[in-house]
Design a protein around this nucleic acid. Structure first.
Lengths: 249, 249
DNA sequence: ATAATAGTGTCTCTCAGACACTATACC
DNA sequence: GGTATAGTGTCTGAGAGACACTATTAT
């Protein structure tokens, strides 16, 4: 028996069903920034458990699908979105996080420009799918649970451990903002430096110095002026910039 | 039927077995720093697949065990270690990463002072369990695969996607080093600033400025002098410091 | 003209790197 | 005393915050 045959025989005899297996779900925190805050797409649960509560969109992982592919599938199915910045966030695996059965949830986060979401949310009746403003009760990158608010500023009931998942997403983008060009994912192709600063301020939850922000962004070569200016803004119109391809850096 | 009863009935009727489920494994990259390099604990695989190749220690997740608990269990079982700094790293889920069956691997990394590992590795015959120096072919936080070397500097064959898992661990600790006190996890209770700098240099893979490193560490209040000095070093003995409890900051 | 924001120039403060200099143990 | 490293003092340059000042458009 050659080593290759031996390995083939081993694999053929391997019984994958001897250990009880958890289910694996992929949940995607779709984030955007508008009105000075961070907003997340949430779906109202139609079924038990946690029926009527609001949940981060997700799906069980298919048996021949990569984790990244599952995240893309969730974004396409729940929000009709493709080509979105998406990154793995953290994996949640407390034994009792889902009362049905053991579910290990691989969480992702995705960033999208708000105008691409307006269509998504208005297409539904905004009853079972909505954008909710996040309320972050901790400063900086402390971490912890994060709530979601309805239009009147009341806390929405969140399903499972999704307050923790939202908290991890906020912590992550706050941490990445300083060294990764993620602000651009939340803006249209052309934007003023003021727009970009507002995005950063919303994510960080604090005001930034106007002048040093401008200099930092320009000095790092992250943006390129387009030569166009915004119009009809009621004051001196700002130069519009676009994200500089990182290959230029 | 009250809402509570209805939920109970739903959960009782829920059949968790209708979807095929992947296996979930927890792999732990146990890292230490010595001789100017980063070293990882690797186990030689006794069985197919990848028999004879070197793998990051791991185990299948038990059905009632949290992910963190599984990581601790792996450290206790494979290295006899408890109370080690451990943190979730990334989840690897390519459909073909294990030829036996679909396995989603939740990777952790752990940091330990090298003297605590000498016992572990010498207890075995160093045939099926060893520390291997990592060879990192990329600068900074670029990311990518990382190899492991034997005592003669030859590449060890790694199992599965474990070169990628090692790479993610190195990328993570390089990124965390600047803002998190992880260097102390790799040193005994009392250490000189020179020792600490060598740990940082080994992790980052580049030399650091002696003077500014000293000032940065002291000015941030991360360390407290013990009043003791190292002895028998052949030159002026350095002050020994200990890690300052972060509550003091 | 006025309001409002865009955008520039300059000063200061902090921090990292560089480097010179002194200190101290072991040989 | 020589050697090797510990530890301090000082200069310089880069970058952030603060602030004053000019520029430009809508009303």
């Amino acid at each position: 028996m050659s080593p290759g045959d031996e390995e083939q025989a081993y694999l053929a005899a391997y019984d994958a069903s001897i250990f009880p297996r958890p289910s694996v779900a992929v949940d995607v925190v779709l984030l955007t920034v508008r009105n000075g805050g961070i907003w997340a797409l949430l779906a109202r649960r139609a079924d038990h458990p946690h029926r009527g509560r609001w949940a981060v969109p997700g799906s069980f992982l298919r048996i021949d699908e990569s984790l990244d592919a599952a995240a893309s599938r969730v974004l396409a199915a729940k929000a009709g979105l493709a080509d979105i910045f998406t990154e793995q966030l953290y994996t949640f695996g407390a034994p009792d996080r889902d009362p049905r059965t053991r579910v290990v949830a691989v969480a992702y986060y995705a960033l999208v420009e708000p105008s691409r979401l307006d269509r998504v949310v208005s297409a539904r009746e905004a009853v079972d799918l909505r954008l909710a403003r996040l309320s972050v009760p901790w400063p900086g990158e402390t971490g912890g649970s994060v709530g979601a608010l309805d239009d009147e500023g009341r806390e929405l009931g969140l399903a499972f451990d999704h307050a923790e998942i939202l908290g991890m997403a906020v912590k992550r983008i706050r941490g990445k903002l300083d060294y990764a060009p993620i602000g651009f994912e939340l803006l249209p192709d052309a934007f003023s430096l003021r727009d970009l600063r507002f995005v950063h301020e919303a994510i960080l939850g604090r005001a930034l110095n106007k002048d040093s922000f401008r200099r930092r962004i320009i000095d790092r070569g992250l943006v390129v002026p387009t030569g166009r200016r915004a119009a009809g803004v009621g004051h001196r119109p700002p130069e519009l910039y676009r994200f500089a391809d990182r290959s230029a850096t």
